[in-house]
Amino acid sequence: MGADNPVSQAQIIKEFSMTTSIIGLFENGSIASKVLGELTKAGFKKSAVEILQDVAVSQISSRLVEAGYEKDKADSYGKAMQKGGALVVAEADDDKADDALSTMRSFKALTPEALLEKLGNRTDEATESAQVIEEELEVGVSRTTGGKRLKTEVSEREVQETVTLHEENVEVEHTKVDRVLKPEEAAKAFQQGTIEMTVVSEKPVVTKQAHVVEEVALSKHSGERDVTVSGTVRRQDVTVEEIDRKPAGSKAS
């Protein structure tokens, strides 16, 4: 099915399956993208819509033959698109094919001949431009985080103290004696008994006691200060100058 007006043409290619290929040729990729957007809004899956642009003739022809076009007509699309244009191929269920066709026609789908005519009527314009660029100095505030931290560490050191100890010792002294006991002394002498002498000795005893000798505290004070910031900015200006005209050389025939 096609439109009577050759300048606005989109076509439905019936296949033997339950899906239909809808073909639309447009002046540029921007229009083709809009068609894709409208089809998506209408409920068509994005994966079922394909845009062909800036590809080889064989690729376009092969895709259209696959969609149901005759080889000669498919080639005419491919050749026309070597100068520009974009082709939209949508695969849709049979009951939605007319909706896709109407959408493509609303964006003025073209025939290959109409596309060539539009592209041929374009005029090439050469434009050269220069930019005026100016830098601006922007001053902001960058915050950095710092401060002080109290950290406790435990260290050890040897401490020596001198202490006087009292010490007692028991000494045993043997003395040789040669003396005869009288009978009454002898009776008293042979008696069992124990003689003890107690001594006292001292040894050092070490104990530890912790004392707080200093306290360190952190406090924060806030304030404001003014800082003058300077920098160099650049500006690029454009000056228009006349070019001296020089006579072109000529050749005698």
Rank of each mutant, 00 (worst) to 15 (best):
H174W: 09
S201Q: 12
S142Q: 09
K96T: 02
K45S: 15
S47V: 03
G193R: 01
L64C: 01
K151F: 08
F16N: 14
M81V: 04
R234C: 03
E113S: 05
V55R: 05
S17K: 09
E185M: 05
V57K: 09
A86Q: 12
S222A: 14
S47T: 04
S250V: 12
S253K: 12
I22N: 07
G147W: 05
K188Q: 02
A10T: 02
V65K: 14
G249E: 04
V180M: 08
M18F: 03
R149Y: 03
E128T: 05
T123S: 03
K46M: 11
E138C: 06
D226H: 05
Q160S: 13
K108V: 10
R235G: 02
I243Q: 13
S219Y: 06
A217M: 09
E50S: 09
L137Q: 04
S61V: 01
D178M: 11
T232Y: 01
M81S: 07
E241I: 09
V216H: 15
T207C: 10
E184W: 03
F26C: 02
E196Q: 08
V139I: 15
L115E: 00
K148E: 10
L25H: 03
E168D: 14
S76F: 11
V199E: 13
V35K: 01
E167K: 09
A210H: 08
V88M: 10
G24W: 00
T232F: 03
S58H: 00
E168M: 03
H166M: 06
K41M: 06
E27V: 13
H166Y: 13
T144E: 12
G120I: 01
E15G: 12
A42H: 08
L218H: 07
L165Q: 08
Y77W: 10
I60E: 01
S230I: 06
G193L: 03
E161A: 08
T194A: 12
K188E: 07
T127M: 09
P6N: 04
V89T: 08
V240Q: 15
D4N: 06
K41C: 00
E134Y: 12
I22W: 01
K45E: 02
A3F: 08
F107W: 10
S58E: 11
E153C: 06
G120C: 05
E214T: 09
D4Q: 11
I60D: 04
E27I: 09
M104V: 00
R105A: 05
E242K: 15
V132F: 10
D75S: 13
V205D: 11
A210Y: 04
E167M: 15
S230G: 02
A42M: 09
V88A: 13
K176Y: 01
E134Q: 11
E38M: 08
A90V: 08
V212Y: 12
V35Q: 00
Q11Y: 01
L52C: 02
E91D: 11
V89H: 12
T164N: 14
E134V: 14
V55A: 01
R225V: 07
L36S: 05
V55L: 06
L101P: 00
K96Q: 06
K41A: 03
L64Y: 00
E66K: 15
E70C: 07
F190P: 00
L39S: 00
E91I: 15
A56V: 04
V238W: 14
E241N: 14
G140K: 13
